[in-house]
């Protein structure tokens, strides 16, 4: 797929601490002084106008918000065995939802609301390893 060089890569945006955290095996997420979690990551809180963003470590635990199992070979997914399951995971104790992948050894359909725990892996795209949370059903 030709994306005209428009893809934003890690470490050049407001979410750089997230990527750096994953590279160290930690899940860091941004929270404003007013208590509001900011995701997508932002340098300013739209709720209170604050610009003091703290990056807080969260355990890699959460629940499945939704999912899809991909069977078609789309460009950029060449490193993933088909079929693979992608999920939106709600992280415990902050409510931020993250895109990630879910272990799917037996092709059992995921259940929305089901508890999951994660570990840091990587997804290889165009010769680059992107840190990725790989979730498993707990």
């Amino acid at each position: 797929m030709d994306c005209g060089g428009l893809i934003m890569h890690a470490n050049d945006g407001a979410d750089a601490p997230y990527w750096n955290g994953l590279a160290e095996g930690r899940l860091l997420l941004p929270r404003c002084g007013c208590g509001d979690w900011l995701w997508p990551a932002a340098n300013r809180c739209g709720v209170c106008g604050g610009e003091e963003v703290q990056w807080i470590e969260r355990p890699m635990r959460g629940t499945i918000f939704s999912w899809t199992r991909t069977w078609h070979r789309f460009g950029f997914t060449e490193s993933l065995d088909l079929p693979f399951v992608s999920i939106v995971a709600t992280v415990d104790d902050c409510g931020i939802r993250l895109l990630g992948r879910l272990d799917d050894p037996d092709q059992v359909d995921p259940v929305i609301g089901g508890a999951i725990s994660g570990r840091v892996g990587a997804t290889r795209v165009e010769g680059r390893d992107i840190p990725t949370i790989i979730w498993s059903r707990s």
Partner: peptide, 25 residues
């Protein structure tokens, strides 16, 4: 091209069909 970023690429979400499939489920 409007949407792709590392969060999506890492999850293997690269096409409109997948983006809409997650919402549909």
């Amino acid at each position: 091209a409007h949407h792709l970023n590392d969060h999506m690429l890492a999850a293997g979400i690269v096409a409109p069909a997948q983006v809409c499939a997650i919402r549909a489920n």
